[in-house]
């Protein structure tokens, strides 16, 4: 028996066209918002000469991780500067930070909703699975058709790829708050919001930070893919090197990405530990 092929592909394309028609102005608005966020962060990161910025970042890392982290930051960032990738590294950093920031803004409330309602969790979980396992290239295309080429669809694609850990671990962190503590909060007459802000979020914070750390790492891993749709930065350097088979340039840009990745990872981890010690 020969069953007809299900028209999933055509359906998706029709949906894409319909959404473009219907929500065009909304997409434009989102593009402007995200574009200005990236520009703003980029401007802040470029507000001084590279050596001054390196000094500032080194001081910041010293507060978080003392000598070990600060010396790594100093050497790593000087290396990026020396290789001539400073501007592009800051471009990449501004994309990654924008995507991470927006992921937190979207992910934390969603995670809280999931923790409050089993129904919402039941709906959101498979969607997250879908987002994480669908090859990232696939949603570059609708991102481009909604937001045109450039840095914005790159940020959007990064958010789709990177937001799941924040949602999942916010949900998990809140659900892991011991039942007796929740009972105690209830027994003393807390409103749901008082319970959330006075008990659940503070206790879930280390778990949530682990999710945010993952989100940052994942959005950093999207930089090369985003460069295919016109996002600038280190990703574009790597992409260009690959297409032109320039192994040396590829490695230089790659090392710069690695430095950024380790730096961001250690900084967020230190924030988690600092938080644990404070409680």
């Amino acid at each position: 028996m020969n069953l007809p092929k299900l028209p999933i592909g055509r359906g998706i394309e029709a949906l894409e066209a319909w959404m473009e028609d219907q929500f065009g102005p909304i997409f434009d608005f989102i593009r402007i918002i995200i574009g200005s966020l990236v520009d703003f962060i980029h401007m802040a990161l470029n507000s001084g000469p590279s050596l001054l910025m390196i000094a500032l970042l080194t001081v910041l890392t010293w507060f978080l991780g003392k000598w070990k982290l600060a010396s790594f930051a100093l050497i790593g960032l000087l290396l990026i500067d020396n290789l001539g990738y400073w501007d592009n590294a800051m471009e990449t950093l501004s994309i990654v930070l924008s995507a991470s920031l927006l992921s937190i803004v979207i992910g934390v409330p969603l995670g809280i909703l999931c923790a409050r309602s089993g129904l919402i969790q039941g709906i959101v979980t498979p969607v997250l699975d879908f987002m994480q396992t669908m090859p990232a290239f696939v949603y570059l295309l609708p991102a481009v058709s909604f937001f045109s080429l450039g840095v914005v669809p790159g940020v959007i694609a990064s958010i789709i790829f990177a937001v799941p850990p924040t949602i999942r671990l916010t949900n998990l962190g809140i659900r892991q708050v011991p039942g007796e503590l929740v009972e105690a909060a209830d027994a003393f007459g807390s409103t749901p919001n008082q319970k959330l802000f006075k008990l659940q979020l503070p206790i879930a914070l280390p778990t949530m930070m682990a999710g945010i750390n993952q989100t940052i790492m994942l959005s950093l891993s999207m930089v090369v893919i985003s460069s295919m749709i016109g996002a600038q930065g280190l990703g574009a350097d790597v992409y260009r090197a690959v297409t032109q088979t320039k192994t040396g340039t590829g490695f230089e840009a790659g090392i710069s990405i690695v430095v950024l990745a380790i730096l961001l990872d250690r900084m967020t981890q230190k924030m988690v530990n600092k938080n644990k010690r404070q409680r």
Binding site: P178, E180, L181, E183, A184, A185, K198, L199, P202, I203, R279
Partner: peptide
């Protein structure tokens, strides 16, 4: 029973 004090 298990005190249920808020650790934070």
């Amino acid at each position: 029973q298990k005190f249920a004090l808020f650790p934070n």
